[in-house]
């Protein structure tokens, strides 16, 4: 059915799309190249190749400390989001009630609010109730924005499952907990995995919230990178970004394997 004739508009469109991806990839690729520079400053093209800036990351203490905080917060917020989110999905994804729809909209609404506002407001509120600037505070604030990602993917997967599996198990005498553990959980595991990955990456890359909870013990990697960039402009940030990109690409491939990239483009 596909017509193979390539008319002028088609060629123009193809050229436009190629230019578009040059625009999309150029700022990312130059950072990858600069991270392998042998120069002591940021310049493009680079004068020579070296991996010294990757070594520099591991020498600069604040980067490593912040990396550990970032990983801890991202894992913590993701686990907490799953514990809170999965039960809610079990009810909301199957309910056709109007109010259930409204509740879901509410639970997803942190995604639509400016993060800088959530960060600023949370700092004052958590300080007022005595949690203040601490790891706990950071964890709570991150969970607010991670929870919607888990909810959306898990509810999406669960809503698409037929009820018959769970009903069959229940009719055959499985207790509600057994139904959940042996039937529902294995079926929604792809959704949980994908939601957890989105949640992890969201937390790991978050700056507008983490910024307000910055202290020596609670600085996350993006916060340290921002303050580093505000004072210095050297290739170590490029090396760090390149490592992060590697992590993200691996994550994307994992998501594709267990969830399917094309399913992310279908609006939920």
């Amino acid at each position: 059915m596909r017509r193979n004739q390539s008319s002028l508009p088609d060629v123009a469109l193809l050229a436009f799309v190629v230019l578009f991806f040059v625009f999309m990839l150029a700022p990312i690729l130059v950072v990858v190249v600069v991270s392998f520079t042998s120069a002591g400053f940021v310049a493009f093209p680079i004068p020579g190749w070296s991996t010294k800036w990757f070594a520099r990351i591991f020498e600069y203490r604040p980067f490593i400390d912040a990396l550990i905080v970032s990983i801890e917060v991202a894992i913590g917020a993701t686990l907490l989001s799953c514990l809170l989110g999965v039960p809610a999905c079990l009810y909301l994804a199957r309910s056709r009630a109007k109010w259930a729809n409204a509740v879901m909209t509410f639970l997803l609404s942190p995604l639509s609010m400016p993060m800088i506002v959530i960060g600023f407001a949370s700092l004052f509120f958590l300080s007022a109730i005595g949690i203040g600037v601490s790891f706990t505070a950071l964890l709570i604030a991150h969970t607010v924005v991670c929870l919607p990602y888990v909810l959306r993917t898990v509810a999406g997967v669960y809503a698409g499952l037929p009820r018959s599996y769970e009903e069959a198990a229940a009719i055959l005498g499985a207790s509600p907990l057994a139904v959940f553990w042996h039937v529902t959980l294995p079926l929604i595991r792809p959704g949980i995995m994908a939601g957890s990955l989105f949640s992890f990456l969201t937390s790991f890359d978050n700056l507008p919230i983490s910024y307000f909870f910055g202290s020596a013990d609670t600085n996350t990697l993006p916060v340290v990178m921002l303050s580093y960039l505000e004072h210095q402009f050297d290739p170590s940030v490029a090396a760090l970004s390149t490592l992060q990109l590697l992590l993200a690409v691996i994550a994307l491939i994992v998501v594709d394997r267990i969830y399917g990239i094309d399913r992310m483009t279908v609006s939920s």
Binding site: L25, F44, L245
Partner: peptide, 27 residues
């Protein structure tokens, strides 16, 4: 789709840094 989504997963710092590299004095 991969080329569209891959940049979404890079950090905001990296992309901003990329623009600085492109347009810096020695960019």
């Amino acid at each position: 789709i991969f080329l569209l989504i891959a940049p979404l997963l890079t950090s905001i710092i990296m992309r901003t840094f990329g623009w600085q590299v492109l347009f810096a004095r020695k960019g």
